[in-house]
């Protein structure tokens, strides 16, 4: 490929499209299902229940400290599948590219998708590329869709929270959102924050092995911790109480949020999960989490209570309390 930028012809379905697929997409993603290049991917399925999820990625900037839109697109859908207790298997990837996009940037993103797929242990088995006129899209949008298999006896859902469950988080909150905003707004903080963007399916597999009594799993992406806890509290009709002094947040994130007027509890994460689990199994699960690199800083941050129903309550450091409500509108635009 001599041209160094994506042109409309790359998405036209003709010879340039074929070349783009054969030269840019196929080599890194090559697998027996994909390389057939039929209109749809065909594969066998196991018995049992399947999980199916889709998500579009429009993050700005597309390259950010700790990742890029490609890694995000793989990890995001892998994590959505993992949050229902599924073992992610196959993903499709659909790219909308703005005319003029640099080919070397596309290749860098594809390489990053490849690496994230390898880490997660999934295959990309179907894909599509469209090119739109300059201004028709902001550089690059990616949609990934995935399927996964849910093991026998696993029942994980936002409606399953029970009074007495403890709430565990697998590490520091807010890294992704603050990394993105610092990059986008050219805020030069002394320490470089890195997005936590990571596939969590292996961590979830370890946790599921350790306990059969995990009730809820959620990844606090857009809207952060508070949003997912509110979703769970409402779906299950319970209250959730969390303790300000127990919530792991890095100094840099706290500092940046204090300055910018954000609440880190609402800031997006891309490599974090929350677990609601019966208290008896909490230690077991924490132990396996601590052994996984994405769970090293796992901590109990709260518990499920009966009242106030459908409410998330924060016990503040000084002994007061406040209700943590759903965010109205977006705290940060286009973080994923």
């Amino acid at each position: 490929m001599k041209k160094d930028r994506i042109s409309l012809a790359h998405g036209g379905g003709g010879s340039l499209t074929k070349r783009l697929i054969k030269e840019a997409f196929l080599p890194p993603f090559r697998n027996p299902i994909l390389e057939v290049l039929d209109d749809s991917a065909v594969f066998k399925i196991e018995k049992g229940r399947m999980a199916f999820s889709t998500d579009s990625y429009v993050v700005n900037p597309i390259f950010f400290p700790g990742g890029d839109i490609g890694r995000l697109a793989i990890c995001g859908t892998v994590n959505d599948l993992a949050m229902s207790g599924a073992r992610p298997l196959y993903l499709s990837a659909s790219l909308i590219i703005e005319e003029g996009f640099l080919l070397k940037d596309l290749k860098r993103i594809i390489a990053s998708m490849k690496e994230a797929s390898k880490e997660a242990g999934i295959e990309i088995v179907a894909g599509d590329t469209k090119v739109v006129n300059k201004g028709g899209a902001d550089r690059l949008f990616i949609t990934t869709t995935g399927i996964g298999i849910i093991g026998e006896g696993i029942d994980i859902s936002g409606v399953n929270a029970r009074v007495g469950d403890v709430v565990i988080v697998n590490g520091y909150l807010g890294d992704h959102g603050v990394a993105i905003i610092s990059e986008r707004e050219r805020l030069d903080f002394r320490t470089k924050l890195i997005s936590d963007c990571a596939p969590l399916n292996h961590l979830v597999a370890d946790m599921l092995k350790a306990s059969g009594k995990i009730h809820v799993l959620r990844d606090p992406t857009r809207g952060g911790l508070v949003t997912v806890l509110n979703e769970v509290a409402q779906s299950s009709g319970v209250g959730i109480e969390i303790f300000e002094d127990k919530i792991p947040i890095r100094e840099e994130v706290k500092g940046a949020c204090e300055m910018l007027g954000y609440d880190p509890l609402y800031v997006a994460n891309e490599g974090k999960l929350i677990v609601l689990i019966v208290p008896q199994d909490a230690d077991k699960v924490l132990k396996v989490m601590h052994k996984n690199k994405y769970g090293r800083n796992a901590k109990i941050i709260g518990r499920v209570v009966k009242k106030p129903e459908e409410t998330v309550l924060l016990r503040t450091q000084i002994g007061g309390s406040r209700i943590l409500d759903m965010l109205v509108g977006e705290q940060l635009p286009r973080i994923c």
Binding site: T316, Q317, G319, R322
Partner: peptide
């Protein structure tokens, strides 16, 4: 005042 729950204290 609201964030830290001061009123109720």
């Amino acid at each position: 005042i609201f964030k830290h729950g001061i009123k109720e204290l």
